[in-house]
Amino acid sequence: MEFTEDQITRYSRHILLPEVGGKGQKKIAKARILIVGAGGLGSPAALYLAAAGVGTIGLIDSDVVDLSNLQRQVIHQTPDLGRPKVISAKEKIQALNPDVTVLTYQDRFTSKNALELVKAYDIVIDGVDNFPAKFLINDACVFADKPLVHGGILRFEGRVTTIVPRKSACYRCIFKHPPPPGLIASCQEAGVIGVLAGIIGTIQATEALKLILGIGRPLTDRLLDFDGRRTAFREIKTRRNPHCPLCGDRPTITELFDHDPETCAVKVTSNA
């Protein structure tokens, strides 16, 4: 594939970088990235990846735009209220960069569709706000052997980590199971400073671009935690856990399943 004059101009600030160049920009153009959740984290991730010229962006989200979303979900705007988030996001992406193919799934990400979806992409970005979905995304990526860029935000704190299945620690290497329902507050209950979505979501986009380009040092085996009150990052070094129920030496999770609020508490046993 060859770039047009306009594309060379559009991506010129990338092409100028020795680490990217025309060759790297072509890798970006061929990349397929799935963003699970077109909300707080998914918004900035989708916008920057679209601007960067990622060839195919998949968006899965079952929700419609709510007024309380607009404080941080910057891909959606006031006239989008009540519209499906994936449609609203697709329009913004295409207005920003018509080079991008946007595939939308107005659906929930569940154990039924997770594997098939993840397999169709090169990299997955976690942009969901609940633990059952976060664990499911992790599991699907490990089973499908797809790199995952995990992100989370709550109150003034955020976290990013990159997971390269069976090469670096997965989410279950650290947390075997989700916390019991109701134990950890949600953004809906506890609030979140809106800008955190931008900080964490754009780091996720950075990680995805690095993976596509094969440059730098990925955020693997490291949790990067951000404290917005102190404007401080803390890095927690991790490593694969041989006792991981998913990617450890003797895995007990051999197929996808949905952690749901009712069974979550039951599944969290003494060694959770």
């Binding site: 998914g42 989200d61 706000d129 633990f131 059952p132 976060k134 955020g158 979140v192």
Partner: peptide, 20 residues
């Protein structure tokens, strides 16, 4: 020692929403 808390929003006890 690293004490690693959950970050990412938990699902509200009475509801299961998809998106942050």
């Amino acid at each position: 020692i690293e004490i690693i808390s959950f970050i990412g929003g938990g699902q509200p006890a009475d509801q299961y929403r998809d998106v942050s």
